Amino acid sequence: MFKREPVNTVFFILLVLLTYAVFQCQWPIYWFLILGGTWFLLTIIGSTNVQLNYFYPALHKNPGVVQQKIALTFDDGPHPNTILILKLLKKYNAKATFFCIGHCIDEHPEIFKQI
């Protein structure tokens, strides 16, 4: 269970206990850096790995699909290079999703029609 809320709760409790230990038991103050660094490292790992679902549940695999597949997407088009991409897609009988921008569509309406 590597979720943001439990991790933050555990580290908050550890911070309170560490504060007590530093001021009452004379522990070295660098323990705050160790605790903060550990929390920061876990948060970075959770933030950069989608499969951990650290912040929000994310769909990263579908057990119903047995073949490995990828999805091709192209953003911010149409662009003159889009014609080359369309030729490659046609050559290999591949499909892709194009996300187009309004002013680019106005600049290249013929390419948009080909998409």
Rank of each mutant, 00 (worst) to 15 (best):
L14E: 04
L15Q: 01
V16P: 05
V16G: 07
L17T: 10
L17F: 02
L18Y: 07
Y20F: 15
A21P: 01
F23L: 14
C25G: 04
Q26E: 11
W27R: 08
Y30P: 05
Y30D: 06
Y30H: 13
I34K: 07
I34R: 01
T38H: 13
L41A: 13
L42N: 01
I44D: 08
I44R: 08
I44Y: 13
G46D: 00
N49M: 13
N53D: 10
N53A: 07
Y54R: 00
Y56R: 12
Y56A: 07
A58C: 14
A58T: 07
L59F: 11
L59T: 11
H60A: 10
H60F: 04
K61I: 06
N62R: 14
N62S: 11
N62H: 11
P63G: 05
G64T: 05
Q67Y: 10
Q67P: 00
Q67E: 14
Q68R: 08
Q68F: 10
I70G: 02
A71C: 13
L72G: 13
T73R: 10
T73K: 08
F74V: 03
F74A: 01
D76I: 04
D76F: 07
D76S: 02
D76N: 06
P78D: 00
P78W: 04
H79R: 09
P80Q: 00
P80C: 04
T82Y: 08
I83L: 14
L84V: 06
L84H: 07
L84C: 09
L86V: 05
K87A: 12
K87W: 08
K90Q: 06
K90H: 09
K90P: 07
Y92E: 09
A94D: 11
K95T: 12
A96L: 12
T97I: 14
F98L: 02
F98T: 03
F99R: 00
H103G: 08
H103L: 08
C104W: 01
C104T: 02
C104H: 00
I105T: 04
I105H: 07
D106W: 00
H108W: 15
H108T: 00
P109Y: 11
P109G: 08
P109D: 02
E110H: 10
E110T: 05
I111E: 01
K113Y: 07
